[in-house]
Simulated assay, not measured.
Amino acid sequence: MYEYSDIIMERNTAPSKLYPGKFYFSRDPRLKTMGLLNFSQDELVEYAQHMTCPIFIAKAKSGSYYEVKENFYEVLDVLKRSSIDCDFCYIDGTHHAHLNNPEELAVLIRQFIQKHNIEDRNQGGISDDIQVK
């Protein structure tokens, strides 16, 4: 994991404007998901019932659960029933699998995007100008 620390540090630090030669952590507070933890399990299940779009979820095999494990799988089961395509898969690694083994995850994401990239934009899909190739 330490071989990726330079990537994480580059992404999460910025040079100080007040103190040349010094840096500060620049994590974007909007990325924190603590607000999601305020939903009850019943609310999450209710919201999941209304999710009809294609959904891709990757779970690290050695990753933690940030909720009661059974609650995670209950919502996943609801998503599998409500979504036109709920694509759930396990990937090797821990919470940082996207950093430690990005190639494995990239293949899965690319397949999901290609499956749902349709020409008729009235039906949804991903436009060519925003695709990563």
Results as ranks from 00 to 15, higher is better:
residue 45 V to E: 12
residue 122 N to L: 12
residue 43 E to M: 08
residue 41 Q to Y: 03
residue 64 S to P: 01
residue 36 L to H: 06
residue 108 L to K: 15
residue 118 I to D: 07
residue 6 D to M: 03
residue 4 Y to N: 13
residue 67 E to N: 10
residue 12 N to C: 08
residue 28 D to I: 02
residue 9 M to F: 13
residue 25 F to T: 07
residue 125 G to Y: 00
residue 59 K to V: 09
residue 72 F to K: 01
residue 102 P to K: 05
residue 60 A to P: 04
residue 128 D to F: 04
residue 25 F to C: 11
residue 123 Q to T: 12
residue 113 I to M: 13
residue 127 S to V: 10
residue 78 V to R: 02
residue 18 L to R: 11
residue 91 I to G: 05
residue 126 I to Y: 14
residue 98 H to Y: 14
residue 74 E to F: 00
residue 34 M to K: 11
residue 87 D to L: 00
residue 4 Y to Q: 13
residue 32 K to N: 10
residue 101 N to W: 02
residue 116 H to L: 05
residue 128 D to Y: 02
residue 75 V to C: 08
residue 27 R to L: 11
residue 35 G to W: 09
residue 21 G to F: 07
residue 46 E to D: 15
residue 12 N to Q: 04
residue 34 M to T: 09
residue 69 K to R: 12
residue 2 Y to M: 11
residue 50 H to W: 07
residue 72 F to P: 01
residue 97 A to I: 00
residue 109 I to T: 09
residue 85 D to P: 06
residue 37 L to Q: 13
residue 106 A to V: 04
residue 44 L to Y: 01
residue 16 S to L: 00
residue 88 F to A: 02
residue 114 Q to R: 15
residue 14 A to P: 01
residue 36 L to T: 08
residue 35 G to Y: 07
residue 96 H to K: 06
residue 127 S to F: 01
residue 104 E to I: 03
residue 84 I to Y: 04
residue 77 D to I: 00
residue 63 G to I: 03
residue 76 L to R: 08
residue 15 P to C: 03
residue 77 D to P: 03
residue 101 N to C: 06
residue 14 A to L: 10
residue 5 S to Q: 13
residue 119 E to R: 08
residue 114 Q to T: 03
residue 110 R to P: 00
residue 56 F to P: 04
residue 124 G to H: 03
residue 118 I to S: 08
residue 8 I to E: 12
residue 93 G to D: 06
residue 31 L to H: 06
residue 6 D to C: 03
residue 10 E to T: 13
residue 54 P to E: 07
residue 37 L to P: 01
residue 94 T to L: 04
residue 89 C to P: 01
residue 94 T to C: 13
residue 27 R to D: 10
residue 82 S to E: 04
residue 30 R to I: 01
residue 101 N to P: 00
residue 29 P to Y: 00
residue 62 S to F: 05
residue 93 G to P: 08
residue 106 A to F: 12
residue 51 M to Q: 09
residue 45 V to A: 07
residue 89 C to G: 01
residue 37 L to E: 15
residue 30 R to E: 12
residue 47 Y to N: 12
residue 1 M to T: 15
residue 20 P to H: 05
residue 48 A to D: 04
residue 105 L to G: 11
residue 60 A to N: 00
residue 126 I to R: 00
residue 86 C to G: 10
residue 62 S to P: 02
residue 63 G to P: 06
residue 49 Q to W: 03
residue 6 D to Y: 12
residue 17 K to A: 14
residue 71 N to Y: 11
residue 16 S to Y: 09
residue 115 K to I: 04
residue 28 D to A: 10
residue 112 F to I: 02
residue 26 S to R: 12
residue 58 A to M: 05
residue 113 I to L: 14
residue 30 R to W: 05
residue 127 S to H: 08
residue 127 S to P: 10
residue 32 K to V: 11
residue 95 H to Y: 07
residue 35 G to L: 02
residue 26 S to C: 14
residue 30 R to G: 05
residue 19 Y to V: 14
residue 94 T to S: 15
residue 72 F to W: 09
residue 39 F to S: 10
residue 33 T to I: 09
residue 93 G to L: 07
residue 24 Y to T: 08
residue 7 I to L: 15
residue 50 H to I: 00
residue 86 C to F: 06
